[in-house]
């Protein structure tokens, strides 16, 4: 059995590809709530390349969601840098669209299609087709055309998350950030949405940073998996050869190796 090959945090992780600029670059990022509190995210570095699905995994409270919020521009860094296409990220913006865990992230006073239209308009995203058409197209991508005129309160949790994904994609961001978007869904709905995200990632060459605490989800979706320790540092960044095949014998083995490593890091 081959141990997962870990790259030390901060080292280049895309062998032979260093000349190309990464879509997202995180350099020695540390985050703390307030100047006197201990750091939650500790000196983390990684790149995410165009079209790549990068998974942040760790236990509850390890700082993975905080790190994602920093990528979105909601959270200030104590030190370090976040670069999107080489430019410093300091504020939130529609070039980094976030999909949250909460089902209630849709505006309850707008229908599904109006939620997507709202995002397209407010983001000032330009396109050839009308805003309405683009919103409908985005809903079609997540197989929700039939629910376009329903209000969020009339949709199931899984459908609401689909709308949130459509909303994120419709504004054509440089990168999509997902914060445990399926954490509160039942197992079957979760599996179908994971398949949906993997398909969109491949078909649209969607660049993705995805936070989860589920190893199966990480192996199913990720091109690379960044494993975080409870202290908020990286334990390693693992290339994943089993994307979409987490159920294969090798995928299962890889997942269990990751689990061992994750559990060891918790001590």
């Amino acid at each position: 059995m081959s141990a997962p090959s870990a790259h030390p945090a901060g080292a280049p992780t895309t062998g032979g590809n260093e000349t190309r600029q990464a879509t997202l670059t995180v350099r020695n990022a540390s985050i703390a709530y307030g100047p006197k509190n201990p750091v939650i995210v500790n000196n983390v570095s990684f790149d995410v390349n165009q079209g790549e699905a990068f998974i942040l995994i760790g236990r509850s409270g390890c700082g993975k969601s905080t790190l994602l919020r920093a990528l979105a521009g909601f959270q200030e860094l104590r030190s370090g840098q976040i670069l999107l296409d080489g430019k410093n990220v300091t504020t939130p913006g529609p070039d980094r669209m976030m999909v949250f865990q909460n089902f209630d992230q849709l505006l309850p006073w707008r229908t599904a299609v109006q939620n997507v239209e709202f995002a397209i308009k407010k983001a000032g995203s330009k396109g050839a087709a009308s805003v309405r058409q683009r919103a409908l197209d985005a809903l079609q991508m997540v197989h929700l055309s039939a629910a376009a005129d329903k209000f969020p309160s009339q949709l199931s949790g899984g459908m609401q998350q689909r709308v949130a994904i459509a909303r994120a994609l419709a504004v054509r961001p440089r990168i999509v950030l997902m914060d445990e978007p399926f954490g509160a869904l039942d197992a079957m709905t979760r599996a179908s949405l994971q398949a949906e995200v993997l398909r969109l990632h491949k078909e649209m060459n969607m660049t993705l940073v995805f936070v989860t605490h589920s190893i199966e989800e990480a192996v199913y979706l990720g091109d690379r998996i960044g494993l975080m320790t409870p202290q908020g540092a990286f334990d390693g960044i693992f290339p994943n050869a089993f994307q979409g095949q987490v159920d294969s014998p090798e995928g299962t083995e890889f997942a269990s190796e990751l689990r061992t490593r994750l559990e060891a890091s918790a001590v």
Binding site: R96, F100, L107, W109
Partner: peptide
């Protein structure tokens, strides 16, 4: 709900625009 404010900010809304398009309806 804080997440609705985050959604607005994510789209680049701030100050009066954020109040007008998120806070009022919410």
């Amino acid at each position: 709900r804080p997440v609705l404010v985050d959604v607005g900010r994510n789209l680049g809304l701030r100050g009066p625009r954020l109040i007008a398009s998120i806070y009022f309806s919410a």
